Simulated assay, not measured.
Amino acid sequence: MLRSIIFYTTLLLGIASTAAAFTQPQSFTPTRRNSFLALSTATATSDADIQEAKALLCRAAETKLENPDRVLDALESLEKNCKKKHKENPAAFSKDIMDNISGEWRLIFTTGTKERQKKSGGRVNYFPLKAIQTFDATVEPKVIENGIYAWNLPLLRFSGDFDFDERRRKLEFDFDLIELFGLIKIKLGRKDVAKIGASTGLGSANNEKLADNGRRAFFDWISADENIATARGGGGGLALWKRVEEE
């Protein structure tokens, strides 16, 4: 009975849970100075591209008025250049993410999973519902929550724990508790949660496959700062979140 309630609640909600290479002529033998200048130029270019992408994404998060195609282009640009920055210093880059990730984040934009993109026939626009993802990296085990809200009432909320692989920027998580309307709490195994998510559109079918193989769902994290967070989900979708300011 309770699982039927969960199924129809999620079904009604109808949501989806998202150095430029420098080559030299063959006859040119780069000196250490030339190599340093090329690296410096590449780094500066990446930094500028990151800031440009973040500026557009911040505007999109605040207004939801930026063209969705431009938002997606900015997400892809940010992902590409953040990968380069991560390779330069994985430990420092990952520490910066973990230092900023704790808190509440509202989902602003998602492309949806690859499966959903195929079904919709194109890109997904701004997310219409109030979806809040919460992370707490200051405790052990680290805590993750994902919920859909009507004003401040959680209609449906999943919670569990997560780990972060600094070397791969991979955040792996399990949901094992479901809460309905802030009143009913149901403890379920991760396979059950993955199946519910996949059957209702809340999660990716890929998460169900991972659970069947004893693996955890994941995000490939891109960035997190004082304003926005970005990641690519295990189902292949890109997502943009805006930090929820404390009242």
Rank of each mutant, 00 (worst) to 15 (best):
A205F: 01
S35Q: 13
F36T: 06
K54C: 04
K114G: 04
S4Q: 10
K242L: 14
R59L: 06
C82N: 10
W105I: 05
L12V: 12
P90C: 08
R167L: 01
K209W: 00
E115Y: 02
V143D: 10
S27G: 11
R157W: 07
Y149S: 14
A38L: 06
I222S: 10
I97T: 13
K83C: 07
D174M: 02
E76R: 08
Q51P: 04
G103A: 10
A229S: 14
L210Y: 00
A229Y: 11
N34F: 05
I15Q: 10
R168E: 08
I228P: 13
A53F: 02
K64Y: 01
K118S: 01
T23L: 11
F181W: 14
D73C: 00
T138E: 14
L107A: 06
S17W: 13
L39M: 04
I50Y: 05
R3W: 09
I186V: 15
N81E: 15
K118M: 02
A239Q: 09
L177K: 12
S17T: 03
A229D: 08
T10I: 09
T9D: 15
D220C: 05
D163H: 00
G237E: 03
I5P: 07
L13Y: 09
F218S: 07
E66H: 00
I184C: 12
E76K: 10
A91D: 10
A55W: 07
R215G: 00
K84P: 01
E62G: 04
E208R: 02
D47M: 12
F181N: 11
L11Q: 15
L13E: 13
R70S: 04
E245I: 14
K114W: 04
E208N: 02
L240C: 05
K84M: 06
W241M: 07
M1G: 15
A21N: 12
D176G: 04
D225F: 03
T43F: 11
A48P: 05
M1D: 14
R157L: 12
T9V: 15
N146D: 15
A150K: 13
Q24F: 14
S35Y: 05
